[in-house]
Design a protein around this nucleic acid. Structure first.
Lengths: 142, 142
DNA sequence: TCGCATTTGTAAATGGCTTCCGTTTTCGCC
DNA sequence: GGCGAAAACGGAAGCCATTTACAAATGCGA
């Protein structure tokens, strides 16, 4: 528990109940899990925490600014969040079952840097989503 | 002029003034130009055309469904459109000057397909944006 | 423990986009 | 060239994720 507090303080944020709770949710979810602000809001409600939706948005934005979480904009609208990790990873999204998987590929990164280089451009970040379908059946919504 | 009409008819769309005008705007802009619905709406207003914003959105969506244009969702919100081309291309966005450049890279596509393959996934589409800065000065807004 | 700046919750506002609906336009058919 | 059903339009209202305004509540250094 002191751990989250450390993280928050390190980021220059006061340790408040909403921030701790939201951080815990993201933390418990583990890698590869992505939540919308709405998702997190619902989880808080369900566990009896009385946190406003506006606060969820505010906190997530602060976390993002502090580098604690990263925000992804999938095609078609709202953002999802996940705890930031050191290594850049990209996403694969199944348009049938909605499942999101991640991958890290150094060769890909290298190629992208080369391409940018040729264009006289220095890459600082990227968003890459592959859309398609799981090869093995995936009819059921996850 | 008959050309646009052909395209529209081919797409199963009646030839109406708003559709023709919007198509022309996209066409005249040429490759590498991206417009938001709002942009297009303003251009129509400026050239004295009395087209509703709702119609602009409708038409762009129809064009997209018909494969005439492609829609891109850059980080941070609203969509931009451009005339569709045969070859899939990706984007480089300068976060300083806002310039957008495009590229096509077969090796990249190959690598992405391989990665997806390893994950048991079949790619049907992708969105890839590289964010960064132009190496040569680009202070001035485009 | 106190004081006050920060943070929060609620409600209202925003902004991109879509839908509703009465009116206008297109275009196949005469 | 003119008719009329079907499609498309414009404007206003609606939707929905997100942000903002503001007064009340809270964290935390002194």
């Amino acid at each position: 528990m002191a751990l989250e507090n450390q993280e928050l303080r390190k980021a220059g944020l006061k340790v408040t109940l909403p921030r701790v709770k939201i951080y815990q949710i993201l933390e418990r979810a583990g890698e590869g899990q992505h939540f919308s602000a709405e998702d997190i809001y619902k989880m808080l409600m369900e566990s009896g925490e009385d946190v406003g939706l506006a606060t969820v948005y505010r906190v997530l934005t602060q976390f993002e600014a502090a580098g604690l979480v990263s925000r992804h904009h999938f095609e078609g609208g709202h953002s999802v969040f996940e705890l930031a990790r050191d290594e850049h990873h990209d996403h694969v999204v199944c348009v049938k079952c909605g499942r999101v998987r991640e991958f890290v590929d150094q060769e890909l990164t290298q190629r992208l840097n080369d391409i940018a280089e040729e264009l006289g451009f220095t890459v600082t970040d990227r968003t890459l989503y592959l859309y398609g379908v799981c090869r093995d059946g995936c009819e059921e919504d996850e």
